[in-house]
Each structure stands twice: as C-alpha cells, then as structure tokens.
Simulated scan of single mutants.
Amino acid sequence: MLFAMMTALAALPSASVALVVTRAATLGIANGMAVAAGIVLGDLVFVALAILGLSVVAEAMGGLFMVLKVVGGLYLIGLGISLWRSQGGLVAMTNSRDNSKRGLATSFISGFVLTLGDVKAIFFYASLFPMFVELSALEVLDLVTIIAVIVLAVGGVKVLYAVFSAKAALFLERRKLQKTSQKAVGGLMVGVGGYLVLKA
C-alpha cells in the first residue's frame, strides 16, 4: 500500500518532476538520474525526521524550510531563463561541460534541496506517512523495507521521467523542433519556480 502511494505521489506533476525533466532533457539522462538520487535522499531525510517527530522539527525549523523553498524556486527560475536564452538546442547542451562530475553534483544537490523545501513532501511525511507505518514500533527490517520502497517507488518514477525526457529531447532534435521545446521547457521551469516562490 505504501509503495502504491509513494509511486502515485512521485508521478504527480510537481517541481521535482519539472527539475528531473529539465536536467535530463538539457544535460542528459545521467543528470536526470542525479536529480532523482537527490530527491530520494531528501525523502529519506523526511523519513528520519518522521521517526524523530517531523511536526516538532518542522515547527522548530519553519524558517529554514521556507528559505529552502524560495531557493528551490529561484533555482528553477534561473534554469528556465537560461533555457530561454541558450542558443544551442537541448541535445547540444548535453555535451556541455555541465555534464561533468560538477554538473552531476549540481543536479544531485538541486534535487535534494528542492525536496527539503517541498510542502507536499513535508505534509505527506508529517501527516499521511504515520498512517501507513507504525513509527513507534519500527524495527531494523521495517526500516530497511521503508528505505527500499522509497528508493524503488520515488527513484524509479523519477528515473523513468529522466529517460523519457532525454529520449524526447533526441527525438525533437532530429525533427528540428528543439528550439520550440527548449522555450516550452524554459517557460515551464519559470512558471513552477515562480509558483514556489509566491507560495513560500
């Protein structure tokens, strides 16, 4: 049941999905997967906080969560603007120096930070997660199972988004539609980022 819920939530259109799609389409599958890994790590942090009492931690760190949300939103806006201004196509950007280890680290960190500022994730782990898991009676095997569920459900869905986005970018490149798709993805990133900042 938890697996189905996590998969459904991970598949919903969100800022994290937009980030995975953008990094994968512009910088390749590896960057999309790095974002997915950062998102999974952020979810695992929320699991740890849920076990410790997320609602108490969230209240104590309310300002920090707000800052993370704004930073995540501004980052998405910056990505969107850079896509709008870029002269190369989506796939041309794949071969840029951002596809280095530094680019992968940036993708990972951006996924992690975005997840920590995600109100949907905070709400789920503070309110709904305890309905699926008896937090007070967790054993080591239960914890390992929860980690495996999050990695497979959340990570699996985000990786699928990354693979699909990279393939779609290649398809659009071959059909000479990369400029249009680049503008569309850039507009999506600016819109999602602006929404996050306004909701902070």
Rank of each mutant, 00 (worst) to 15 (best):
M1C: 12
F3A: 10
A4V: 15
M5R: 11
M5S: 12
L12C: 05
P13W: 02
A15Y: 02
V17G: 01
A18F: 11
V21W: 12
A24S: 13
T26Q: 12
L27S: 12
G28V: 11
I29V: 11
A30D: 14
N31I: 07
G32V: 10
M33R: 01
A36Y: 01
I39F: 09
D43Q: 06
L44Q: 01
V47Q: 00
L49P: 00
L49V: 05
A50R: 04
A50W: 15
G53M: 01
S55G: 07
V57C: 00
M61F: 15
G62W: 13
F65Y: 12
L68K: 00
K69C: 04
V70C: 02
V71Y: 07
I77S: 01
G78S: 10
L79Y: 10
I81A: 05
W84G: 03
S86H: 10
S86P: 04
V91P: 10
V91R: 12
A92G: 15
M93L: 13
D98F: 13
N99G: 14
S107T: 06
I109Y: 05
I109F: 15
S110Q: 07
S110G: 05
F112H: 03
V113R: 02
V113C: 04
L114M: 05
L114I: 02
L114K: 00
D118T: 05
V119W: 04
F123R: 00
A126W: 13
S127P: 02
S127Q: 09
L128P: 04
F129C: 08
F129Q: 09
E134T: 07
L138R: 01
V140R: 03
L141H: 12
L143M: 15
V144H: 09
T145W: 13
I147P: 13
V149D: 06
I150Y: 08
L152D: 04
V154F: 10
G156N: 02
G156R: 01
V157K: 00
K158A: 08
L160S: 09
L160Y: 07
Y161M: 05
Y161T: 00
Y161G: 01
V163C: 01
V163G: 01
S165M: 03
K167E: 15
A168E: 11
A168V: 05
A169K: 02
A169F: 03
R174K: 13
R175D: 15
K176I: 12
K176R: 15
L177K: 14
S181K: 04
Q182F: 11
K183Y: 15
L188S: 08
L188P: 08
G191R: 01
G191Y: 10
G193Q: 06
Y195S: 09
Y195C: 09
Y195L: 14
L196V: 06
L198A: 15
L198C: 08
